[in-house]
Amino acid sequence: MKIFCFVFLFALMISCENSKSHDYTFYYWRTHLSLDAPEKAALDKASSTYIYTRFFDIEKVNGKFQPVAVITKDRTFKTDKEVVPVIFIRNDLFYDITLDEINFLAQNVATLIKKKQTEFGFKVSTQIQIDCDWTAGTNKEYFTFLQKLKEFSKKEISCTLRLHQVKNSKLSGIPPVEKVFLMCYSTSSPLENSTKNSILDFPTLKAYLKNIDLYPLEIEIALPIYSWGIVTNHLGKHKLINALSVEDLKNVNFKKISDTEVEVIKDGFYFGNYLNKGFNLKVEEISEDRLNQVKKYLNKKLPGYSIVYYHLDSRFLNHHSY
């Protein structure tokens, strides 16, 4: 009887560990803010009180820092969630940057965020998130920018964390922020000739995150729900077509190679692109099983975390239960 009880309790513990619930929400990554009915419903159901919304990118144009792809909004974008601004900054901006330029950049980023929050009537967020693929060669300058942004904005600053920045944390450095958002996707380049799923290959992810439990900051998790198609031409060159699914491969002008791959057998326009006969088209998408596999692994590594799904788009929502 004692053995039975022990086995039962052990099984119960494992079951609970693998079925932990996590607060979740979404990234919103389109330039024009709008919500159709499925997107609005999915956002309303999300258990987190936040939505992480890309406000603009920063690039260097003619030697000057410039905001690009700044968001616009229509009347359909209505939510009770706290809209957290996310700013994408190219890593190369932090090469050969002076302290005065860092101060200028941080102050102007804070000012434009505040302007957009006021213009669109968003709930004033207590957070700002910065997305940058920093490296060992730019970490000092980037980390100084994060500190200056906190000073100017008087906000809590978080930043994204890429897989290589975890694996090589001694070289990449630890950012001076309250928390990081670990991007559990882009495990390889979609433009390489590989049989792996470039969005999320689980063995590759595990190799990068072997020591994630030792990372010294609070970690939230970003998981992919997006998909795309990879077109390969006669010369072996690749091109991406966003938001394709396996269902899109069911076309009389495509010859099936595998469940996720076809060959074009008739020239024509497909998904807004002209594809020639003989081109190869492979779809990469993320199954619910693969996401659960990642969560199960992270549950063993991290004491607790919330999830931000990338990204809120009705083309991706039906494939997952959240």
Score class of each variant (00 low, 15 high):
Lys2Cys: 03
Leu12Trp: 12
Ser15Met: 13
Glu17Thr: 06
Asp23Ser: 14
Tyr27Gln: 05
Ser34Lys: 13
Leu35Val: 06
Asp36Gln: 08
Ala37Leu: 11
Pro38Arg: 09
Ala42Gly: 03
Ser48Met: 10
Phe55Thr: 03
Phe56Asp: 08
Val68Asn: 11
Val68Arg: 08
Glu82Gly: 03
Ile87Thr: 11
Phe88Thr: 14
Ala110His: 09
Lys115Ile: 10
Thr126Met: 02
Asp131Tyr: 01
Cys132Asp: 03
Cys132Met: 02
Asp133Arg: 05
Asn139Cys: 12
Glu141Thr: 11
Phe145Arg: 03
Phe145Tyr: 14
Leu146Thr: 02
Lys148Ile: 00
Lys148Trp: 03
Lys155Gln: 14
Glu156Leu: 11
Arg162Ser: 05
Pro175Phe: 09
Pro176Cys: 11
Pro176Lys: 12
Glu192Ser: 07
Ser198Arg: 00
Leu200Glu: 04
Ala207Glu: 15
Lys210Pro: 01
Pro216Asn: 09
Leu217Cys: 07
Ile225Gln: 04
Val231Gln: 14
His238Tyr: 09
Ser245Glu: 10
Val252Cys: 01
Lys256Asn: 08
Glu263Arg: 14
Lys266Ile: 02
Phe271Cys: 02
Phe271Leu: 07
Gly272Leu: 02
Lys277Gly: 08
Leu281Tyr: 01
Lys282Asn: 00
Val283Gly: 09
Leu298Val: 05
Val308Asp: 04
Phe316Ala: 02
Ser321Lys: 15
